Simulated scan of single mutants.
Amino acid sequence: MIPVPSGVRVWLSMGRTDMRRGMTGLALQVQEALGRDPHAGDLYVFRGARGDLVKILWHDGLGMSLYAKRLEKGRFIWPSPTEGVVAISAAQLAYMLDGIDWRNPRHTWRPSSAG
């Protein structure tokens, strides 16, 4: 798991991203297409056309990191806008990376009484 500091902003890049891009190409996309600073310490999440692979770009103050995760089954839940960015919380990112619908997470079991 990515050691996400508290208070970090997470941005989902809308649309399809060419997953052949590395950290330099994705940083350039953040700067030019999204109009944001890729070195500001925010996390930028990109999804490919098939939806089973995400890449996360992060500059931690010392250097740029690129993380990738591919689901064995299913797809990552992604918002519907075709362009721009959508902000989510670090907790929602954790749900997403676990393959859970981060828009409406549900408890599988909740106790009905204490005793």
Rank of each mutant, 00 (worst) to 15 (best):
T24W: 03
I56R: 03
K73T: 15
K73L: 14
W11F: 15
Q29W: 11
F46G: 06
G15A: 07
L34R: 10
L34T: 05
D42S: 14
M64F: 05
S65W: 15
R50M: 10
Y44M: 03
H39V: 04
D37H: 09
D37P: 08
L34N: 02
R36S: 01
E32A: 13
S13H: 14
E32L: 14
G25V: 07
G61Q: 11
R21D: 00
E72Y: 02
Q31G: 00
E72N: 12
P38N: 09
L71N: 05
P38I: 10
W58D: 03
E72T: 10
R50Y: 09
V45L: 13
K69A: 04
S13E: 05
G22N: 00
L53N: 02
G63D: 09
R36G: 00
L57A: 04
L66S: 04
F46E: 08
R47C: 12
H39I: 01
E72D: 15
M14G: 01
G35L: 12
V10L: 06
L26K: 05
R70Q: 15
G7E: 09
D60Y: 05
W11Q: 09
L62G: 13
R36E: 06
L12F: 12
R47A: 07
Q31M: 02
G7W: 07
H39M: 11
D18S: 03
S65M: 09
R16L: 14
G61T: 05
W58S: 03
G63T: 08
Q29D: 12
L62Y: 09
L43F: 10
R20N: 03
S13Y: 07
A68V: 12
A27Q: 11
M14R: 08
D52I: 07
G7H: 08
R9P: 05
Y44D: 01
T17D: 05
V54E: 00
K55G: 02
A40C: 10
K55T: 04
V10M: 07
L53E: 12
A27F: 10
M19Y: 11
D18L: 01
R20L: 03
K69V: 03
G7M: 10
D60R: 04
S65A: 13
K73R: 15
A68Y: 08
R47Y: 01
L43S: 02
D60N: 10
P38H: 10
R21W: 00
P5T: 07
W58Q: 03
R16V: 15
R70E: 12
Y44F: 15
V30F: 06
V54Y: 00
V45Y: 06
G61I: 06
H39W: 11
A33F: 05
L12V: 10
G7D: 10
G22M: 01
I56L: 15
